[in-house]
């Protein structure tokens, strides 16, 4: 049982992981993440890479929506902008991946700044529609600016390489994705301990009071859009080296909605929750699919009515979260942890 957590120095007070237990937990998690690619099958590795890339993009969206309170329905488009910028940097300019991926992030960042401009004047649902417009416009550009984006056929990219080592399998890409995910998650967690990050939270909680406290609303909102899109752009860049082909059909509106689902299910305004959400939204449909597949073996006709069931079950799970745990998976996790801390005493 944990009875207290005494901090004796300022360094202790500022630590991200404050208790030996949480530090041990982190160490176990990192060790598991390192061992995983060597024991997992191709299929699991593919899903893991997908989760990692989505988690990076969802982190970006959570910075914007969860922490700053600016809703965005165009997040997939920013992932797309990053993906195209990376692919173009890699194929046309011949840049190595350690330059082309950040380049994708920066281009997406600029796109985010432009799309974020109206956010000073419009809020809430109106902003949602403005960002929806960005989604549609970018999708159109991907399809029709054939000279640059390769049109409907898209662009093919060679695998990422570093000192003659090619990231040409899901196992190798895994290290790239999860290395960057760790870095970016750490960065995001730290962001909210700086002036900029605290300004984001202040704007979310009440923009007028934030302005009265001397926060430049315009700068802060644009900054949130830029950082958020930067994360999306990095995710897009990784997507390119993961899928090795980028087409306009990879970044539809439904993906934007999926990112929103991730941060809502995981927990708005938490880093941990974003990671949980990305895992949940990517893997639960896959699990449900495995269940329907297994049921098909028992009865071949089951497919016709079980297949739509999985959509319904998935939808019901999301509604269930909103109703019973609006703070998302992150809150459930904290509750479970508190329970064990205090065990065997009731809370």
């Amino acid at each position: 049982m944990l009875i207290g957590n005494f901090k004796e120095t300022y360094a202790d007070d500022e630590a991200l992981f404050r208790t030996p237990a949480s530090r041990a937990g982190l160490a176990v998690l990192l060790a598991a993440a390192l061992v995983f690619p060597f024991v997992a099958s191709d299929y699991l590795l593919y899903l893991a890479d997908l989760v990692g890339i989505f988690a990076i993009a969802a982190l970006g969206l959570n910075i914007l929506t969860g922490y700053t309170g600016q809703i965005s329905l165009g997040h997939a488009a920013f992932v797309g902008v990053g993906a195209y910028a990376t692919a173009i940097a890699a194929t046309r300019l011949g840049l190595p991946f350690w330059l082309s991926v950040p380049a994708g992030g920066l281009v997406a960042c600029l796109a985010g700044a432009v799309v974020g401009l109206p956010s000073l004047r419009i809020k809430g649902l109106y902003l949602a529609i403005a960002t929806l417009a960005a989604q549609v416009i970018f999708e159109w550009v991907f399809t029709n600016w054939t000279g640059v984006t390769g049109g409907i056929r898209g662009l093919n990219v060679e695998p990422a390489g570093l000192f003659g080592f090619a990231f040409d399998s899901d196992r190798r890409v895994y290290f790239l994705v999860f290395g960057l995910l760790a870095l970016l998650a750490y960065g995001a967690a730290n962001l909210f301990r700086t002036r900029v990050g605290r300004a984001f939270i202040a704007v979310r909680d009440r923009d007028i009071s934030a302005e009265l406290m001397g926060i430049d609303l315009f700068r802060t909102k644009i900054m949130a859009f830029m950082i958020s899109s930067f994360y999306a752009g990095i995710a897009g860049g990784l997507w390119v080296y993961f899928a090795r082909v980028v087409t306009p059909e990879s970044f539809p509106l439904s993906l934007s909605i999926q990112f929103l689902a991730m941060i809502i299910v995981g927990g708005l305004g938490t880093i941990k929750g974003t990671l949980f959400g990305a895992v949940f939204v990517t893997l639960v449909p896959e699990g449900l699919r495995a269940v329907t597949q297994a049921a098909t073996r028992l009865s071949p006709d089951a497919m016709s009515w079980l297949a739509p069931m999985k959509e319904i079950v998935f939808g019901a799970m999301i509604v269930g979260f909103l109703v019973f745990e609006p703070h998302g998976l992150a809150e459930i996790w904290s509750r479970v942890r508190r329970f064990f801390w205090l065990w065997p005493f009731p809370k």
């Binding site: 099958s41 191709d42 997908l50």
Partner: peptide
């Protein structure tokens, strides 16, 4: 999902 299925079947 299709690519994931492909890899799963192959494995």
């Amino acid at each position: 999902k299709a690519v994931a299925t492909f890899k799963k079947m192959m494995a």
